[in-house]
């Protein structure tokens, strides 16, 4: 049997590329050149599989890929998949759940402490030469320990954050989710409440939902208005879960204390986005899962899933809608 032909559309670690070359015939994008849609369409005409990050897999693309059988996402989110179109063309989609949970939870705790204790702001101020004798109360912040963390979307990453916050920092955990999460309730003493109550009672509010039609702009003007005036908002899930203009307005009007953001409605962020001028907002370039080990693990998981599906063996990480 001949090896399946695949397209590697994003840079991956060398050992993952080696693994793919052993099992597949590989076409790889020349990463010294900017990605062009026409070039991609030309390549995918005769490949069986694609491994990539964030490429829109829709009717238009699929109609050009006559032999395509599987697309592997090197990410846990798969809002780049047009699931209906993939069903129609009989394309399997896979993602990388599980391997990045701990790393993303680390990022989220980093954002919580950084916003509450104003670390980025204090570091920049000192580096700009503004530290003067006697200003010990210049960057007074908010205590993290024993404060209340509200988690909207209690999946695996939510659980990992609850663990850090509750067992490590003695924080009270409130959560809202489509269904109850018994593990979080038993191990981390998380209390299930309505979304409105979570917003009203928390010192830190974090969203950790996948992006779907239901969660699009889940956080809007009404939701920010429900939050405490001295509460912080944290998002490391997907940008469009938040109505960014409503967030900007809430921050400009001082209706919340600050925000820690790893994701945005548009990425990379526009240079004139008002969030970039706010000292009480921490802005990260979507690095929630960005450590070498985790990215290696994600790329390998995505590569193995693609090979398994193309060899007809099935995979544990096919997205739920296409199983």
């Amino acid at each position: 049997m001949s090896k399946p032909k695949i397209f590697i559309a994003n840079p991956i670690p060398g050992f993952v590329e080696d693994y793919l070359r052993e099992n597949c015939e590989v076409v790889i994008w020349d990463f010294s050149k900017p990605k062009k849609f026409d070039g991609i369409l030309e390549i995918i005409k005769d490949v069986d599989g694609i491994i990539q990050v964030g490429m829109k897999i829709d009717e238009n693309l699929l109609s050009h890929a006559k032999k395509l059988k599987a697309v592997s996402n090197i990410s846990v989110g798969y809002n780049n998949f047009d699931v209906e179109a993939m069903k129609k063309y009989n394309i399997i989609g896979t993602h990388t759940p599980g391997v990045l949970d701990e790393t993303v939870a680390d990022t989220i705790m980093g954002l919580i402490i950084n916003t509450g204790r104003r670390l980025c702001e204090a570091d920049r101020d000192t580096k700009n030469g503004n530290w003067q004798k006697g200003d010990v109360s210049k960057f007074l912040g908010k205590d993290i320990h024993q404060s209340t963390l509200g988690i909207i979307g209690m999946g695996r990453i939510g659980e990992c954050v609850a663990k850090r916050a509750n067992l490590g920092f003695d924080m009270d955990i409130l959560y809202y989710n489509r269904k109850r999460n018994k593990l979080a309730e038993e191990k981390y003493n998380a209390k299930y409440l309505s979304m409105d109550e979570v917003l009203q009672k928390s010192d830190f509010v974090m969203v950790m939902t996948p992006l779907s039609d239901e969660t699009y702009h889940l956080m809007g003007e009404r939701e920010f208005n429900l939050m405490k005036k001295d509460a912080f908002f944290i998002n490391a899930s997907r940008g469009p879960v938040v109505d960014e203009l409503a967030l900007i307005k809430a921050l400009e009007e001082g209706r919340i204390a600050g925000a820690g953001l790893d994701v945005f409605e548009k990425e990379p962020i526009d240079k004139n986005n008002p969030l970039l001028r706010m000292d009480n907002v921490v802005t990260l370039p979507h690095i929630g899962s960005a450590t070498e080990k985790t990215r290696d693990d994600m790329a390998m998981l995505a590569a193995k899933a693609l090979v398994e599906v193309l060899e007809g063996r099935g995979s544990d990480v096919i997205i739920p809608e296409l199983r």
Binding site: G110, R117, T283
Partner: peptide, 26 residues
Amino acid sequence: NTVADFVMGLLIATGRRITELNSFVK
């Protein structure tokens, strides 16, 4: 407890380059 919180903030922020990347984006 307040100092311990801050120590963890420094630890995560240096490990994950949070201050540097915040400036990078801004």
